[in-house]
Design a protein around this nucleic acid. Structure first.
Lengths: 329, 329
DNA sequence: GATGATGTGGAAATCGTTTTCCAATAGAAT
DNA sequence: ATTCTATTGGAAAACGATTTCCACATCATC
């Protein structure tokens, strides 16, 4: 393996000089820069990131902490896009990534997790799918041992940024469109998982809408479960004008129930998952660019790792009409 | 961070002795072993895997090379299970994992990829979704610079193992059951992606069945695309008794076509994806335990890395009847 | 008591970087 | 010519393990 040592010898400079050139340090003349860079080219030198990580604490090793939404469900789509986006962007930014799942940390203390991450020379983490109940992870964030970006949870401090769409406004928008277009007054709202950050945000958006348009709303907790959404719709859907769901999956459940009951009600969902294309129904939903959010999260993490202060980052969304569609090959 | 040095000092032995105890080397007395182990306990020492990887070539850093099957499709399910299984098992085995996607290696030469992996101190790789056209990756495997486990491609050498179900037999089994149960004679077989390893295997299984039962079979290439399967079924399905598909996704396409044409034909698929539960149809399929396969792959890779010779590993499968189902929460 | 075999623990080199600190050189100002 | 200040390049010490090699006991054997 060609090392920085070889490059130094080839270019006729010292090891430290090569390192300086590679890392864009000041105090190195244009001339030597060129010498070093051509040496790097000609020797096909690729710096060993493991050595770099060991030697420098500020080096970029990053951990993805993923709370698999699909424990028994088919919605791996979102997680996959998160992971894919993050890893791709990390490659661009020259950061090392390891992927971990919440399930690995079951029954582990903050100290254990911290030690584990340290043993991996992790400097920054991105957390996907954090819920209010994950006390250990909240503690981990608070301790600020690592730079951190949290997706869809409003946690910000010196070393922690939060990222995601404005769920309140998005829920408001998509519901309003559906309700106005169909001239509805009585809403059945199937909310998400208790203690989920986005659950509360989306519900707040609904409440605002209800107040504004002077509607009535029945709120039921669907826990992001298709089956629960179906049952709720069966029980309460008949004398409502519209079923607004906090996720596409629950919207599928609601639509199945409506089909079973043989009544029509407009339904709207949230997320814009491709899976919708397989159900053969129509509805409004909020389309999120999960992969893009994850890329942004990685960029933000890099900013944090290079010293920037934590902040709240909002990403865009669009109202989409999901339709039955054939997949294009 | 507590290091091996601290442990050595605490236990009153040399650094090298601690390392020996940790790695189960011979020539260390039971007494010192205990001293070291209690020191490790009391100091909550977790070895730094980055340092270990740097210092020892045999250390376990592993790369997952994933060919995302879902470029534009919803079948992230399989990839996600692969990744999940591999990472979980790696944690058990104390191996570091980085996840990479084929797309990152587009237009890269073998040398570039090799250097990249070396720069990450990678000792072993697992390849998911290899097709016969991926020349660069084949070259990479042949060079044997890394220990390698290939999923669903029959490549075995000193440093390479292959793992997966017996696709030929599985295809034979599920088709036979469907055909015998429904008393069919004329088969429309929608094969997978040209140049896919599993495509040929599954086709071979069909040919064997056709010969054995003296059936007739029309083979069309569906490229694992739902739309193509639909079109093929539209065009050729009418005067056939059964549509056998090399994947569940294509089976969905076939069933949609049959519905559109308003004719009934038994359909069978392959994979056992959960997505099937959202389509509302019934069919036979082969159910694979993707997560389990990936775990086995990781175990096999560890064996290779500790010196074992490459081999062919077969994993079990079951014939399943996928039905419309509600997702249990 | 000298010799050898064996088991045990330690010193030190190594892996490939980063980073600090210091020396050398050049140019400008006196 | 002398001093001073920048600017640049190099030597060497980390980082935290692994691994080789060597020294010292210990014990049995001749």
């Amino acid at each position: 393996m060609v090392s920085i040592k070889d490059v130094a010898k080839y270019a006729g400079v010292a090891i430290s000089t090569v390192s300086k050139v590679l890392n864009n340090y000041p105090n190195v003349s244009e001339e030597t820069k060129i010498k070093v860079n051509t040496a790097v080219e000609e020797l096909n030198f690729v710096p060993n990131s493991v050595a770099a990580a060991l030697s420098s604490k500020r080096a970029g090793r990053v951990a993805l902490l993923v709370n698999l939404s699909a424990k028994t469900q088919a919605i791996d789509e979102i997680d996959m896009q998160y992971i894919h986006g993050a890893i791709n962007k990390a490659m661009d930014l020259n950061l090392d990534v390891i992927t971990l799942f919440f399930s690995m940390f079951k029954d582990r203390t903050v100290e254990e997790i911290t030690r584990y991450l340290q043993s991996q020379s992790i400097a920054g983490i991105i957390i996907y799918g954090l819920s209010k109940e994950d006390m250990v992870l909240h503690e981990l964030i608070e301790r600020q041992e690592f730079k951190c970006v949290v997706v869809d949870a409003p946690i910000v401090n010196e070393n922690t940024s939060s990222i995601g769409i404005n769920h309140q406004k998005a829920q408001y928008d998509v519901a309003k469109k559906t309700i106005v277009d169909n001239n509805c007054r009585r809403i059945l709202y199937i909310a998400g998982k208790r203690n989920g950050y986005v659950t509360d945000e989306r519900l707040a958006g609904m409440r605002k809408l209800v107040e504004e348009l002077e509607l009535t709303m029945l709120v039921k907790n669907g826990e992001f479960s298709e089956l629960m959404a179906r049952n709720i719709t069966m029980k309460y859907g008949r004398n409502k004008d519209v079923v607004v769901c906090a996720s596409d999956l629950m919207a599928i459940g609601a639509m199945k129930a409506l089909t079973e009951m043989d009544i029509f009600r407009p339904v709207c969902g949230f997320d814009g998952i491709i899976l919708m294309g397989y159900v053969g129904k129509q509805m409004n939903t909020i389309s999120q660019d999960f992969s893009g959010i994850s890329e942004k999260a990685m960029e933000e993490l890099q900013q944090l790792m290079s010293g920037k202060c934590g902040q709240n980052v909002k990403t865009p969304y669009t109202i989409a009409r999901m339709e039955y569609m054939d997949i294009i090959c």
